[in-house]
Structures are given as structure tokens and as C-alpha cells.
């Protein structure tokens, strides 16, 4: 069974129908790239998966459980959304690190708040909380090392380059142990010489077997890294499939002109 299943998701903003019925599925350990021109709806789709937008219709299920169903609003309590959205992680185009916190604090803030709540709900002791915090700290160090930023633990976001900030932001998303990690144009805000280090980290995550959805304009990257590519245009999935096929022999004229436009 597919890890993620998206069925008939639609979304409109006022009169504009941004998503006109999106269906796709994603297997565990696979990397899916979503490409398409600006305004095609790819970012909105990603935001729907992360509950930053609420789809008007459709069902989203993870591991066979419907975590979102437009017909069944009972699942939509704030508490339920909080639980469900942790199935997904999201890395933003503009990083959105918390500027007043150091790199380590950025990584540990959300997990520590969560640990505090859980210990409190279970009427746990201070010692248990301390234990959890120590685990979180250890975990943060490991993840930071995996994105190659061990020496930046105590730096603040403003002291880091864009590429480093984005790597911290990937590490921060990993701290919540998401089933599916989403990237919203992770290199679009970066200078060309800095995109490489971020793409390298994403490639490393693929090699670890992480399930990921990457909205990207980096066609080379999409072609080399993904197991599957979706091309979106005007709120629908125009074409999807194996990256070699999709890039090598695009069927629709709209994808052909999109790809040739990029090559120019």
C-alpha cells in the first residue's frame, strides 16, 4: 500500500481554482518531484499536505489512515490537525528560521515543547523531562552533524549563509521525525553557488531512504534524484511518471514547451 494517497484534492481562492482535482500516491522511500511553471498550483498542493491550506474537497491518507477528509470535518479539530501535520515536514523556500534563537535552539524548540506537554499529560517527573531533553539534545547534535553544520551549533541564523540556513531548516524539520519530508522550492532563494550544498543534503536523505516530495525548478536535480516526477499546469497534473521518460520524451505539448523554455 502506498504511504501517501491524495485523492481528488481541489482548492480555490475566491474565483480562482488553483487545484482542480489532484490525485497521486507515493510509496515509502520514494522521492517525488513536482515541477511546473509559477502559478501552476504546486506550492498550494504542498501547503495543503501540510495543513497550511485546507482543501475544498478531497482525501489525504497516510499509511491507510485518512488524515484529511473534506467530507468529515470531525477530523479537523485543531488538536487533530496538529497530530496529523507531524506526519509531514516542510522546508520553506525562505527558510523561516527563528531569528532570535541559535541553531541548536531552533532545532530543539518544538520537540522540547512537545516533550514538556507529553510529560505533563502523563504526570511524569522532572527527572523524566530532563531525560527527554537530553535525548532531544543528542538527537539535534546528530542531525546537525548529518547536514554538516556541527560547528554552527551556537550561531544565529543571521550569521549563516543562505545555504547553511536552509540546511538548518532541513535539520529542524527532521527533528520532528516526519514520515514525509516536503520541500517548497528549497533552493529558489539561494545564490547559484549555494544551491549545491542544499541539493547534496537532499540527495543524502534520499540515500537514507527518506520519503520526500520536492517542489523544484532544478530540472537536473529532479531528473537525477526522483523516482517519480509530476508536471503540473493550471491546477492539474498534466503528466507524471519516471523522470527519464518525462524529461526524455515529454508527451504533452505543454510539457514540451515548458522544458524547452527552461533549456533556453
Amino acid at each position: 500500500m502506498a504511504l501517501l494517497e491524495v485523492k481528488n484534492v481541489t482548492k480555490r481562492f475566491g474565483k480562482v481554482e488553483v487545484l482542480k482535482g489532484i490525485d497521486f500516491s507515493l510509496e515509502k522511500g520514494q522521492v517525488l518531484s513536482i515541477i511546473g511553471s509559477s502559478g501552476s498550483g504546486k506550492t498550494t498542493l504542498l501547503r495543503c499536505l501540510n495543513f497550511l491550506e485546507t482543501p475544498d474537497t478531497g482525501v489525504i491518507s497516510v499509511d491507510g489512515n485518512d488524515i484529511f477528509d473534506a467530507e468529515d470535518t470531525k477530523k479537523m479539530s485543531a488538536a487533530a490537525i496538529r497530530e496529523s501535520r507531524l506526519r509531514f515536514g516542510l522546508v520553506f523556500q525562505s527558510f523561516n528560521l527563528f531569528p532570535q534563537y541559535s541553531v541548536m535552539e531552533n532545532l530543539m524548540l518544538a520537540p522540547k515543547l512537545r516533550a514538556k506537554e507529553e510529560i505533563k499529560a502523563a504526570k511524569g517527573t522532572r527527572a523524566q523531562l530532563k531525560q527527554r531533553f537530553a535525548e532531544i539534545e543528542e538527537n539535534a547534535r546528530e542531525i546537525l552533524a548529518s547536514v554538516g553544520l556541527s560547528d554552527k551549533e551556537d550561531s544565529y541564523p543571521c550569521q549563516l549563509s543562505g545555504g547553511q540556513q536552509q540546511r538548518v531548516s532541513i535539520a529542524r524539520a527532521l527533528m520532528m521525525k516526519p514520515d514525509i519530508l516536503c520541500f517548497d522550492e528549497p533552493t529558489s532563494a539561494l545564490d547559484p553557488e549555494l544551491t549545491g550544498e542544499v541539493l547534496k543534503v537532499i540527495k543524502g536523505l534520499r540515500d537514507e531512504g527518506r520519503t520526500m516530495i520536492v517542489v523544484t525548478h532544478e530540472m537536473e536535480f529532479a531528473r537525477n534524484v526522483s523516482d517519480n516526477v509530476i508536471f503540473m499546469a493550471n491546477g492539474v497534473i498534466e503528466e507524471q511518471g519516471d523522470p527519464e521518460e518525462l524529461f526524455g520524451a515529454p508527451k504533452s505539448t505543454i510539457l514540451q514547451s515548458f522544458l524547452s523554455g527552461i533549456k533556453k
Binding site: N50, F51, L52, R82, E83, R85, L86, F88, G89, L90, F92, S94, N96, L97, F98, L109, A110, L113, R114, R172, A173, M175, M176
Partner: peptide, 11 residues
């Protein structure tokens, strides 16, 4: 984006 970052981290 600051709010959204917090939201997707489950805060």
C-alpha cells in the same frame, strides 16, 4: 512564515 514554520513543527 514565522507562524507557518511554527505550525508545521506542530506548535
Amino acid at each position: 512564515g514565522q507562524y507557518e514554520a511554527g505550525e508545521v513543527l506542530g506548535m
